[in-house]
Design a protein around this nucleic acid. Structure first.
Lengths: 187, 187, 187, 187
DNA sequence: TGTTAAGCGAGACGGTACGTCGGGTCTTGAG
DNA sequence: CTCAAGACCCGACGTACCGTCTCGCTTAACA
């Protein structure tokens, strides 16, 4: 297969589109950015976008998925501190893209393929980290043997998204309360 | 203000549109329902819709906000049972409108006024019920004095929405796990 | 101006629209043809029409202006025969588009730019032919030196339009009477 | 038949509508005046219009038909003078309503019933006057026995309408030329 | 004097057309 | 084979207009 025929793809076009998507969607939200806006901002032709992504939605998704910085997971210390620290980092990190993430979650509701992508590439990886932290705590005996890790994880991420989608505050103090309420063991 | 002038609005038209909106959006989702579909289903002229709502979005919002059936709140028995029962009812109730609610939450992300409406008329009323159940449990000594009712409420509703938006199962068993995890007091 | 950029316009789309306009407006008249009818008949997208013409009215105008077949002008013989023959041809020719021409004349009354176009591209060319025939007859001595060519031309075309707009018969016999009355020289 | 029951019609409403129609259509042309404009201008309810006229078109037609002043027909003197005088009066008279008449003729093209009305009540009465003038001239021997009165009449009125619809000048000088060309008898 | 029925202004009604906009596909000539 | 440019089809949107319908009020003629 001789694929090295013809003009090579412009390596700058993809990043330019991703960056345009990040910028514009952050500013205005998903719906208020048209494909034409993205092309103009990136200085790129229409087909160049559709050669790389199957739709506007997928491009914008990629724009935020791959840009989400890695969160350092430090497992030292008691589970309360570990979880609190992780959530604080996570929230800080995500809040920058808050408006865009809300748009993405919105768009995912009208497009099953998009949702699956969003789930697999964005939501589940973050969920897995929390679950693994909780599982470690169970193993170490810091949490009860029958602690429902899956449900707890859903509650933690659910609370985050719930507040974000409602436009409410997401700060370090909420991260701490979330960790505390999750792990609460009276007496 | 002399408003009883001219032909009065047809009292049947609004409800017909609301009902058409409920039916069609539940079947197909917000995006796949056009204004014309709504008009045809309701047997109503175009201007009749736009005289009552400023846009298709607002109509659909109204269609679901006020239609949500009342959930019976039975406070007898231990908080675990009460909460489990309530959540089971709530989930059953909301799941009928699942597709539509996801559409609404999505639309709310692109329109602040829409979101505020959705929050005040739909989400907060349900949150208040859960909070009041938990507060009663605290007063009765079933939950610790320092139990974080607000955060727990966010976690419960958050978990629900998180799973719904992700298209995951929402059944009685999940309602029970949610209640159990919220109230967990080891040993 | 670098205009050979981008996909070139489809050369078939314009003619397809013009032909659809001719066909439908001839059948039903201007008012009873919708933009959608034209698009369907031409097998063309909405924007493709509005990229070429600013409105339905302008499209229909173009459809008839340039389509009017050429009338053979035979100048042999006495002016009476020449004029009679020409008018007979002209009437036959125009009558095919009768309904449409009436629509166009009507539309021209509500839009000065449209009227100017109609005048320059349709009415005046035909008026010039008649004037030139009459002028030749004056030169040849078949008509008096002081024959008022301009007024006679207005009367001929006026009579044609007057009867057409009133929905009256326009046949060879009227063409002959018109020629005769125009040239009448008693005794 | 006791029809004198109930509130009598407001005698002022009809004239108010006619006058509003005359004013607005003269200013803006038929198409650019909406029914609502007429109602507002006349200070009248919608049903009051439709109780008196079957459509906007008929109202506007009446507004101009009945307002057309009577033209004095003086038959003294040679036919050239009589016809010239009459046409001068006619033109002067009609020119005031020029814009509106053009609109009416335009509207008549899309509505056969309207056209019939316009023909019967406006165009034919004026045509009959000219025909009768010409017929008198034939009887008096001022015109040849075989003078084609019908065709001549069509040419006179046609020339008038042709120039009016084309937005060209209609003045006393044109009226004279029209009379002269119609009656021209060389040597 | 009280009843009745039609007229009134106001404005909502169903229907239909318009011109704009956005998404994803297709087609040039140039590189 | 990719690029920028821009046309293409499709279909939704919200506005405007027409002629009809319906409200509560007003206005006479009849009872």
């Amino acid at each position: 297969m001789d694929k090295n025929v013809g003009r090579p793809r412009d390596d700058a076009a993809g990043p330019a589109l991703l960056s345009a998507a990040r910028r514009l969607v952050t500013e205005r939200g998903y719906q208020r950015v048209s494909v034409q806006n993205l092309l103009d901002e990136a200085g790129v032709g229409r087909q160049t976008l559709y050669r790389r992504w199957p739709s506007k939605a997928e491009l914008v998704l990629d724009a935020f998925l791959d840009s989400a910085g890695r969160i350092p997971v430090v497992t030292d210390g008691p589970i309360g501190d570990v979880l609190g620290r992780f959530l604080t980092h996570l929230f800080t990190n995500l809040l920058e893209d808050g408006a865009a993430l809300r748009s993405l979650m919105a768009s995912a509701q009208e497009d099953p393929k998009f949702l699956e992508n969003f789930r697999e590439r964005f939501l589940l990886p973050r969920a897995r980290i929390v679950k693994s932290l909780l599982e470690q705590a169970v193993e170490r005996g810091e949490l009860a043997e029958d602690f429902d890790v899956d449900t707890a994880s859903d509650m933690i991420h659910g609370a985050f998204w719930y507040r974000m989608l409602l436009g409410e505050a997401l700060d370090a103090s909420f991260a701490k309360k979330l960790a505390a309420t999750t792990l609460k063991t009276p007496e």
